[in-house]
Computed example of a mutant assay.
Amino acid sequence: MHILSKFCLSVIAGSTLALTGCQQYIQPQEPLPAPSAEAPNQFNLQGKIGVRTPQQSGSAFFTWAQEQDEFDIELSGILGVGKTQISGKPGEVTLNSAKTGLISAASPEELLERATGWNAPITHLVKWVQAKPATQHAQLNKDGSGRIAQILEDGWQVDLSYENSDPLPNKLVLKQALETGKENRITMVIQNR
């Protein structure tokens, strides 16, 4: 069970890292209205993330601070147990926890693969948490209010949920269908922005 918990935490940590570390892909789609306006790749999120694969599952609380091309993510279990720190800037991403030690890589995808053996385009999450597609090839479905409710992109289905009339989602469910008929699933609940 300890090995499974360690692996799950690594998956969650790597997943969250990959969510934020891919800043070279983040570009504003329209000019900012004023210099004081918040940039699309600048935000602070808090919430809970869960990862479920056919082999295992796990969850953690997260705080994610994104400042242009740099980010810091902290993951922890219940009552702050098992803290993991993930930091990144262009060309350098690190994951540090008591269970895994320090792991470094040039990109979030590389770090995720080193930490977990799992390969996924989850760097798109920087756009997805802002209710935007990450590429021009994405297929979009909108809700009755005109907000993006579903993104189909790079083999992933992303379902976005909103609270009331909020313009940004408070929940994302990412699903990747596998050849076995099963799926990989990441559920991200954003409690504070």
Results as ranks from 00 to 15, higher is better:
residue 11 V to H: 03
residue 11 V to Q: 02
residue 11 V to A: 07
residue 15 S to P: 06
residue 16 T to A: 13
residue 18 A to K: 01
residue 18 A to S: 11
residue 21 G to C: 08
residue 22 C to E: 12
residue 22 C to S: 12
residue 23 Q to V: 13
residue 23 Q to H: 14
residue 26 I to L: 13
residue 27 Q to S: 13
residue 27 Q to D: 11
residue 28 P to G: 15
residue 30 E to M: 15
residue 30 E to Q: 15
residue 30 E to F: 15
residue 32 L to A: 11
residue 33 P to S: 14
residue 35 P to N: 07
residue 36 S to P: 10
residue 37 A to L: 11
residue 37 A to E: 11
residue 38 E to I: 15
residue 39 A to K: 09
residue 39 A to Q: 06
residue 43 F to Q: 03
residue 45 L to K: 01
residue 46 Q to V: 13
residue 47 G to Q: 01
residue 47 G to V: 01
residue 50 G to W: 04
residue 50 G to R: 10
residue 52 R to G: 08
residue 54 P to A: 08
residue 55 Q to D: 15
residue 55 Q to A: 15
residue 57 S to K: 09
residue 58 G to K: 00
residue 58 G to V: 00
residue 59 S to W: 04
residue 62 F to D: 01
residue 64 W to F: 11
residue 65 A to Y: 06
residue 66 Q to P: 04
residue 68 Q to H: 12
residue 70 E to L: 08
residue 71 F to T: 02
residue 72 D to P: 05
residue 72 D to K: 10
residue 73 I to G: 04
residue 75 L to K: 01
residue 78 I to Y: 07
residue 80 G to Q: 01
residue 81 V to L: 04
residue 87 S to I: 07
residue 87 S to A: 13
residue 89 K to D: 04
residue 91 G to M: 03
residue 92 E to G: 06
residue 97 S to G: 10
residue 99 K to T: 14
residue 100 T to H: 08
residue 101 G to C: 08
residue 102 L to V: 11
residue 102 L to Y: 06
residue 103 I to S: 05
residue 105 A to R: 02
residue 105 A to F: 04
residue 108 P to L: 03
residue 109 E to R: 05
residue 110 E to L: 09
residue 110 E to R: 06
residue 111 L to G: 04
residue 112 L to K: 00
residue 112 L to Q: 02
residue 114 R to D: 08
residue 115 A to F: 02
residue 115 A to H: 00
residue 116 T to D: 06
residue 118 W to K: 08
residue 118 W to P: 07
residue 119 N to F: 12
residue 121 P to G: 03
residue 122 I to S: 06
residue 123 T to A: 14
residue 125 L to H: 02
residue 125 L to V: 11
residue 125 L to R: 02
residue 126 V to K: 11
residue 127 K to R: 14
residue 127 K to M: 14
residue 129 V to C: 07
residue 130 Q to Y: 06
residue 132 K to D: 15
residue 134 A to H: 03
residue 136 Q to F: 12
residue 139 Q to R: 13
residue 140 L to K: 01
residue 144 G to V: 12
residue 145 S to C: 08
residue 146 G to P: 00
residue 147 R to F: 06
residue 148 I to S: 05
residue 148 I to V: 13
residue 150 Q to H: 08
residue 151 I to D: 02
residue 152 L to C: 09
residue 153 E to W: 03
